[in-house]
Design a protein around this nucleic acid. Sequence first.
DNA 1: GTAGATAGTTAAACAGTTGAACAATTAAAT
DNA 2: ATTTAATTGTTCAACTGTTTAACTATCTAC
Lengths: 156, 156
Amino acid sequence: MLQMPDQHIKEVVNKYISLSFSVNKIGEALVKEQLDCDLTSEQHYMLRYIYQNHSCTSSELADVFSVKKSAITAIITRLWTKGFIQRTRDENDRRVVYLTLTDKGNELYLETEARIHKLVESIITKFDQQEIEMFIQSYEKLYSVLLETKKNQMED
Amino acid sequence: MLQMPDQHIKEVVNKYISLSFSVNKIGEALVKEQLDCDLTSEQHYMLRYIYQNHSCTSSELADVFSVKKSAITAIITRLWTKGFIQRTRDENDRRVVYLTLTDKGNELYLETEARIHKLVESIITKFDQQEIEMFIQSYEKLYSVLLETKKNQMED
DNA sequence: GTAGATAGTTAAACAGTTGAACAATTAAAT
DNA sequence: ATTTAATTGTTCAACTGTTTAACTATCTAC
């Protein structure tokens, strides 16, 4: 880890803050346009997480989404009302409720995700392969640093 | 721009989608912890934009935040009620309302932003200088690609 | 000077979030 | 074994953020 003069660090921090704000805002807006009308971004992300993990619990989602469990209950209930999600109690530990996608939820997720994939692909292919690889590599490192920071914050 | 085999592109797209989701969620949660209790993330971003541009309009904010103008009105009204923001009508074009920070708003913004800076600095300094520079450079390119994509979408 | 565009607000309806209280269940203490 | 703790998930009230549609006020163009 190299040292940088204070002023330069400040500029880089500023740049990162502005960029992450703008990229998130525009990115989220573009993703939103790809969504089926009766699915919000958050709801789609829930479907994605459940799809990829096949099954999960509310506590797990609360941790991954960095929100309280009651926020998860609200979103899951809406998805459940629309018939996209199934709730199944664990027989060994009857406090736990497993969340899985219904066939309808699975189908909707795959359709929507395909559109988002197309969007992201059209953006990513504007870069050359080496640049993407390096970007993703740094992004992964950023993720692990953030995870560690979160873990440290939790101990306060 | 180099070509990649289809399967590889798919993996890279998947990786990017997962990473941007996780980085955003954890990042937002960490930023939230640095905020003054009577300021939400969106509200802080508004203060930042107005601070950096000294003065701006609701339409401008709606464009930058990728939301409708009525969403901006709601947020600005809350900030105005708390005494952080001033509304001034343009004398030449009386439809326009200029938004500026009050002294109180300025002060709160600077305090909060300092804490966020410290957080981001503590994360960014885990990387070496060259890696940051390249990451930021790609991030900037990503931003410009997204901007262009947004512009194209607007023409539909 | 009238018609149409533009800037901003209002109100209703809804999604997402938190905090606090709660029920049901399990784990730990003794 | 019984009481006490902790855990999982839910409900409710209150709030922020968002969109849509209708509206006011103002400006522009013809």
